[in-house]
Design a binder for these strands. Structure first.
Lengths: 340, 340
DNA sequence: TTGTATGCGTTATCAA
DNA sequence: TTGATAACGCATACAA
């Protein structure tokens, strides 16, 4: 129970106290079998007594692995990423791994720096939700020495470990539902930066519209930041159209909530004058008014499946490396039959 | 640009290639002054060419510090903690520190395990938002060898590094505002577990009520989990009172949002029949309906000031160790003049 | 069952 | 300005 010692205790200290060699102490503490039960008990007791804590840096150095996972996200206050972090941390902790968290703040150069740092800290593996999916540093890293799993977004043609949602199908699901409600002029809010998730959702939007024999006259795609503010600010551009859409499919729930706010400010009733549908299925959608209709991703599953996949790779297990998860349409109050 | 090598390069590899000693390579790469400009350039070039990445584990082992900070929170999906994490990560990254994130999930034993792990990984310092503030493991850790800063909650009599909000004053501010609106029967939703923040807010509530010469007949304290679900579930108990309160002061914004939902379900109009005031000032409060009146903490400042404080401690700087930050009443739509 | 020797990759000390 | 040599704390191989 010794506390406050300046220098942490080492195996040597325990060895000196118990009168055995450093090696014996090491074997006792790591639970090796070839050791006398008595000496083991003595060593364990002394270590406990003195409050010995093994230096994991030293152990990692000699063992060549750190039992540390890196996680790189753009923004931990985004509910989607917050849930991702939670799941990754849980699975990591359950498997006795620690988590090094890095955020890119949507900036490519910070992402590159963070990946380098994770490499230098010898993280055994890295999970990443990339910013710009075609950035050279990302491709280099994904093909590099440290095992990695991409989440939600991946570069074109990338065949490595990945967990994400089938965005095309999910987007089509959203549009189909709006079509069933009688909507014809349906707008889509997308991202300016692109990224595979945005591109796929946009593709799904177009495919489903085309399948319903609806063309450019009924379509409208606007780019906006993936935030509440982004959605709110997009309302102006949405309403200034000569033929105003009767429904909007947002890139994600944050944008959709922003739309809800902006539309209320503009005096447009949801859903009677305008339907809004989001994407992600974050909790926020349940508490806004009207409650948000959305296509829910299995966010927690992306996190824990991705982490498990990484751990499997580290353990040398083989298995499916690409996991595309299904989505689920959740109908709430922000969508209704088409106006007019 | 070499990629995919099985074994990471070491100083030895660079030394062999450039024909100098390991030591010289080290000095070149760490920017020491006592080195010939030519050799330095040669070494740097070779290292760059081969894609050398220093092993930070080895460096940490010999230098006795890891440039790693630990952060322990209960739940990273809670917007309050998400913002905290963001700030801590930013300040850490800006100072070339990495962040080891651990979550306790509100469970004391997980918190204890996490603190031990952070110790063993030799985090230079740890920031923690503790679960149970009087737990023995916490007190032991705070007095232990690794420098730490407590955030938002602290044990009774704790004199160590701390950053938090003046909860008593903040709570009184909330109650005073309700009193000014004419409310007399004001309920308070608190936590079952206690913790200094809950106790202080509760104290502030009582003090302000007493100062207004209001006694037990006008007061009501109920315990509920600090979540949306907790607030929602508390509505029933709130409404079954023989003399129903006209206003509720929640422990935090999540609870308050839950109250909003529960009250809507119960058909109670906010604020005309019941006023609701929250605590924290998370973004969520702006997007619910009606928008939430709240007492805002300086969440980002708790995070970055706490981190800076920890870094100062690590750097041996002296200065103020206890920082109690002010709060701000943000009036929005969930509060109004007293009913009846 | 135990101890000795060696090495993990780096920095620090000292002599050359 | 450079290069041996010795740490850092631990685990592993091998000898005793």
């Amino acid at each position: 129970m010794a506390v406050g010692q300046a220098q942490p205790l080492t195996l040597r200290d325990i060895a000196r106290v118990t009168g055995v060699s450093v090696n014996t102490v090491s074997r006792a503490l790591t639970g090796k079998s070839d050791i006398n039960a008595d000496t083991k008990a003595r060593v364990l007791h002394a270590a406990e007594q003195l409050g010995y804590r093994p230096n994991l840096l030293a152990r990692s150095l000699v063992q060549g692995r750190t039992r540390t996972l890196g996680l790189l996200v753009t923004d931990c206050t985004h509910p989607f990423y917050a849930m991702l972090i939670r799941e990754v941390e849980h699975v990591a902790a359950r498997n006795n791994y620690s988590l090094l968290l890095a955020t890119s703040n949507e900036r490519s150069e910070r992402e590159a720096a963070a990946l380098q740092l994770l490499t230098q800290r010898r993280a055994d593996g890295v999970l990443l939700a990339p910013v710009q999916v075609e950035a050279p540093h990302l491709l280099a890293f994904a093909n590099g020495a440290v095992p990695s799993v991409l989440l939600t977004r991946r570069p074109q043609g990338y065949k490595g470990p990945f967990v994400g949602t089938d965005n095309v199908v999910a987007a089509r699901k959203a549009i189909r539902y709006l079509l069933e409600l009688g909507h014809r002029r349906i707008a889509h809010l997308t991202l300016a930066e692109g990224g595979s998730s945005a591109t796929e959702r946009s593709d799904g939007y177009r495919q489903e519209m085309r399948a319903a024999r609806l063309g450019a006259a009924n379509m409208l795609e606007l780019a906006a930041p993936q935030s509440i503010g982004g959605g709110r600010a997009a309302v102006g551009r949405l309403l200034e159209q000569r033929t105003r859409p009767t429904a909007v499919f947002a890139y994600n729930d944050l944008q959709a909530v922003g739309l809800l706010l902006g539309l209320r400010e503009a005096g447009i009733a949801v859903p009677s004058e305008m339907s809004v549908i989001g994407f992600d299925g974050i909790d926020l959608g349940e508490v806004v008014y009207p409650p948000l209709t959305t296509v829910a991703q299995q966010i927690d599953r992306i996190g824990n499946l991705g982490t498990q996949l990484l751990l499997d790779i580290l353990a040398g297990k083989s298995g499916r490396r690409t996991n595309i998860l299904p989505s689920e349409l959740i109908v709430r109050g922000s969508t209704g039959v088409a106006a007019r």
